[in-house]
Write a protein that binds this DNA or RNA. Structure first.
Lengths: 212, 212
DNA sequence: GTCCCCCCGAATGTCGACAATCTTGTTGAC
DNA sequence: GTCAACAAGATTGTCGACATTCGGGGGGAC
């Protein structure tokens, strides 16, 4: 297992980074060769990633990178919406002064990335901000669920950040979240997070309608 | 895998039914013998149940049934609270007339179980009611998360249903949920579900305080 | 030309044996 | 008597070979 869970992390990382495209086949022997490990370690990793929703396995037919439909991406974001609202409220309750400074620094970096039209950098900061809020919340159960949900929809999330005008819209929503957390206003933090993810859901919905 | 995922279901079921106590060791060779399968199938099942949060594995030391502290049970219920509120709202939106009749029948059965002081039967009906609501919601993502969260806290949940007076208190809350769903009132359904789980959290909190 | 059957190749699924690792009990020095 | 190093046992981790299963392609009947 010492090897196997390292492989799980590596494979998860590579899937999220797009090294294996959605729908792409994940052959055990091929992966074992690429990562220089035995088939057992790969099998173990595939089982784990399957129950995380990142991989799909069919009996005797092999594993593929799971495709996430727009409809499922919306459901994932709806689930995130209620869980991250809970997290935002808890973060507002537990954040220290140092945490407040952290959050405000991230917002400042986001503003810079927005002005320079750096979609990739903004997407990265987005992930960092949400992760820091999870850490501050002290709510391990919700945090783990949200981390997994974000992974599952990572592909769509990334495409979103590249839409022209989207970062600047998103920035305002994130600013509102941080503002509420700094003010230690739990209800406002939950509401701001809810508003933010409702906006994401709306963009996904328009996207889905446009594609039929 | 044809065998392995069957074993996963069987082992999950046996853990939830209390055949293996929390903290109890899960030896691969022993389990392989008990279920008449190879070690590979058991290993695969343990990996999957670990990422479901039911099993804990330590490298080179083996697997045990995961212990859920009161604190974690409360967090699990908090997460359930927001997710099941979402589900209740969606169920209110999508339920058909036949679904309404189903729900009301379950409530009637619950009343009977309460009058006869059958804690086990009530606990079972409780699970059935929540499962039917998930099915009606059409929200697969939230449903799957909630099903897993319920499994993780099943032990505490079951002890709750055996507390004297608890079923009758719980019954009223469930009646309110069904009433709102039948009325197709999404907000009321979400609110009723939230109230119900807040009540569960409160009982768990008192329990935790009493135990130190 | 089309349909059906059979065979073959490519993967996964399974099993057994061995290696690595951790825990525990023992032995010896001081 | 206490502590540390060591050895033994138990358990997981890893590897290779073989069995099983599924899909596709080829060949023959009509």
């Amino acid at each position: 297992m010492s090897n196997a869970d390292t492989i799980t992390d590596t494979l998860r990382h590579d899937i999220l980074k797009g090294r294996f495209a959605p729908g792409g086949r994940l052959l055990e022997v091929s992966l074992a060769e690429q990562y220089s490990v035995g088939r057992a370690a790969i099998r173990s990793a595939l089982v784990e990633l399957t129950s995380e929703g990142l991989v799909e396995r069919e009996a005797n037919r092999g594993a593929t990178v799971r495709r996430i439909s727009i409809r499922e991406a919306i459901q994932i974001t709806e689930a995130r919406s209620v869980l991250e609202s809970l997290i935002a409220a808890q973060a507002a309750r537990h954040a220290t002064a140092a945490d407040h400074a952290d959050l405000q620094q991230i917002i400042a970096d986001m503003e810079a990335a927005t002005n320079d039209a750096q979609g990739h950098a903004y997407s990265e900061l987005n992930a960092v901000l949400h992760r820091r809020l999870r850490e501050m919340s002290g709510h391990e159960v919700a945090s783990q669920l949200v981390a997994n949900l974000r992974d599952r929809a990572a592909h769509h999330q990334y495409r979103l950040a590249l839409m022209p005008g989207r970062p600047s819209e998103s920035l305002g929503e994130h600013r509102a979240i941080v503002q509420a957390v700094v003010a230690r206003d739990e209800d406002a933090a939950a509401q701001a997070m809810h508003d933010h993810l409702s906006s994401v859901i709306e963009v996904l919905s328009r996207w889905g309608d446009a594609q039929g």
